[in-house]
Computed example of a mutant assay.
Amino acid sequence: MERLYQAVLRNTRIAPRKARLVADLVRGMPVAVALDALRVTHKKASPLFSKLIQSAMANATSTATVDIDRLVVQEAYVNEGEKLKRYLPRAQGRATQVKKRSSHIVIKLAEI
Rank of each mutant, 00 (worst) to 15 (best):
L38T: 02
K85R: 15
V78K: 01
I53C: 01
S55W: 03
T63A: 10
V73N: 10
E82K: 13
T61I: 13
A32H: 04
A56C: 07
S50F: 04
T65I: 12
T63H: 02
Q74R: 10
V72P: 10
L38G: 13
Q74I: 08
T65F: 02
N79W: 00
A60V: 12
I68D: 12
V73F: 05
N59T: 09
D36V: 05
Q74T: 05
S46T: 08
V66Y: 01
A34T: 00
A64V: 12
V33T: 15
A32G: 07
S46I: 06
L38K: 03
P47S: 05
E75K: 11
H42P: 09
K43S: 12
S62I: 04
E80I: 12
T61P: 12
S62N: 15
F49K: 06
P30M: 03
R39L: 11
L84C: 07
I68V: 14
K43D: 14
A45R: 11
E75S: 10
K83Q: 15
L52H: 00
Q74P: 03
K44S: 15
V72W: 06
A45M: 02
T61S: 03
V78G: 12
N79D: 15
R39M: 11
V66M: 00
F49S: 03
V40Y: 13
T65P: 11
H42D: 13
S46M: 05
A34K: 04
L71I: 00
Q54A: 04
R39F: 06
I53W: 00
A34C: 11
D36R: 07
P47E: 04
S50H: 04
A45Q: 03
R70K: 15
N59D: 05
L71W: 01
T41D: 07
S62K: 10
V31C: 09
A64M: 06
Q54K: 12
S46V: 09
G28V: 09
Q74H: 13
K85N: 13
R86L: 15
K43V: 06
K85W: 07
N59S: 13
S46G: 11
E75P: 08
L71S: 05
A58K: 08
R39H: 14
S50P: 06
T41N: 10
V33S: 10
K85Y: 11
T63L: 12
K85G: 10
S50E: 15
A45W: 03
M57G: 04
R70A: 15
R86T: 14
A45S: 14
L71P: 08
A37W: 03
F49P: 12
Q54I: 03
L48T: 00
V66A: 01
T65R: 09
